[in-house]
Simulated scan of single mutants.
Amino acid sequence: MDQHIAEAIGRPDLIRLDDRLVCLRFETMKAVSALAAVRHLLDTGAVRRGDTLLDSSSGIYAYALALACHQYGMRCHIVGSTTVDHTLRTQLAVLGATLEQTEPCSDLKLDQKRRVERIHEILAEHPEYHWMRQYHDDVHYLGYRAVADRIREAMGGAAGGAAGLTVVGGVGSGASTGALARYLRGAHARAGAPADGPADVELVGVQPYGSVTFGAEHVPDPEIIIAGIGSSIPFGNVAHELYDTLHWISFDAALAGSVDLLRRHAVFAGLSTGAGYLAARHERERAPERTVLFIAADTGHRYVDTVYARHREAAALAELAPREIAHQGQLALPWSRMRWNRAPAVAAAGVIPPRSVPR
């Protein structure tokens, strides 16, 4: 029996949509990382009950951290973007979290920069606060070990069977897709198989156009940068060398994926899930011998007006296919795909080249 609602909210469902297509569905995925991170900080003495935990958020992490603070008797202070809506503001207030919202800004990079600057101002005023650094600290990987164990158990031991498993999801901070791949590959290696063998776990990251994480900042999306899967500022806990393949997906294509997922499989999920579903279907078609699992990070409720109300505009998935590219200079909307081949990040500014290894 769960001891707190946060534990139930963070536990995912595994839903088989097709013979080789599985949805890992969360109500609020970041509850997994927030709970484990706070528990680890308490266990190691980095923080104590009653301390204030601080971070910046565009919405979902704010709720997850507020829940973790509620469970463990901590105070929570959030510097939030203008995307934090009335429903979430009300929940945070009742949970006892303090929310500061930045001034409205149409430039996402400027909005994120302002929030980080405000974090530093608060830390200067209150050095006793603990900055959670959700985009930079590997402590947020910890919660996904249990999720990897659940995937392996549900799929009968070796994840994906003899032909292997392909995990698809938004890159974001790296603490979901990156962590799952790290734990799944680690368990597979301990079982005696080579880490890069044919039965290994492949990781497919999904990015929006305009994200700097894998070098797409030079291609803007006329709609928005999809929240949660990309960033206009560098993230410190993305392990680039974990990713085999990348998909860049526009708002319009992700909208089509979200609508099709609800219409075809009755899964009501967020916009990043629509992008992941689109990429997962394509990867399944390319390698029909492998099981493909994609992540649904949250429900679709906050996307009712911006996505689902536009369902009549959604393109049929049969009309969508990725453009295969060799480097980021070839990126083009609405959908591009590139083999990354577990290459490390390149520190220099500009385009990040993939390692030249055949598929």
Rank of each mutant, 00 (worst) to 15 (best):
Y72V: 03
A148M: 10
T52Q: 05
L123M: 14
Y63H: 15
A124Q: 13
H130K: 00
A62M: 11
D55E: 15
L67F: 08
M155Y: 09
V147H: 11
T102C: 10
A148P: 12
Y144D: 04
L142I: 15
A146V: 14
G143Q: 12
K113S: 14
L99T: 03
A93F: 01
T98D: 10
Q101M: 10
A97I: 07
V79G: 06
L88N: 07
H136E: 12
L99I: 02
H77L: 14
R49S: 15
Y141L: 13
E153I: 11
C105L: 03
G143H: 11
A64K: 07
I60M: 12
Y135N: 11
T98F: 05
D149I: 05
D85K: 08
K113R: 13
E153V: 12
D111W: 01
P127V: 02
T82V: 14
A62D: 05
D51F: 08
L67N: 01
G156H: 12
E103R: 14
A93N: 12
L99E: 05
W131E: 07
Y61P: 04
Y135W: 12
A62H: 01
H126M: 07
R150P: 06
T98G: 06
D149H: 09
P127Y: 06
G50Q: 11
V79H: 01
R152N: 03
L65Y: 04
A68M: 11
I119F: 00
D51T: 12
Y61A: 05
G156K: 11
R133T: 03
T82E: 15
R75Y: 01
E125M: 10
E103I: 01
H126F: 07
G156L: 10
A146Q: 15
A66I: 02
Y129T: 01
G96T: 02
R115G: 06
K113E: 14
R115Q: 13
C76H: 04
D111K: 08
C76R: 05
A154N: 08
R114H: 09
D55Q: 09
Y63P: 03
C76I: 00
G80T: 02
H140D: 09
A68P: 09
H130M: 04
W131M: 07
I60E: 15
Y144G: 03
A97H: 00
A64P: 09
H120D: 11
A124K: 12
D137G: 01
A64N: 12
Y63N: 07
D55H: 13
D111Q: 14
V94C: 06
V147T: 15
T52A: 06
D55G: 13
H70S: 15
S58N: 09
G96H: 07
H86E: 15
H86Y: 09
A62T: 02
D107T: 03
Y141V: 00
R75S: 09
L67G: 08
T98S: 14
L99G: 06
L88M: 15
E100C: 04
L54C: 09
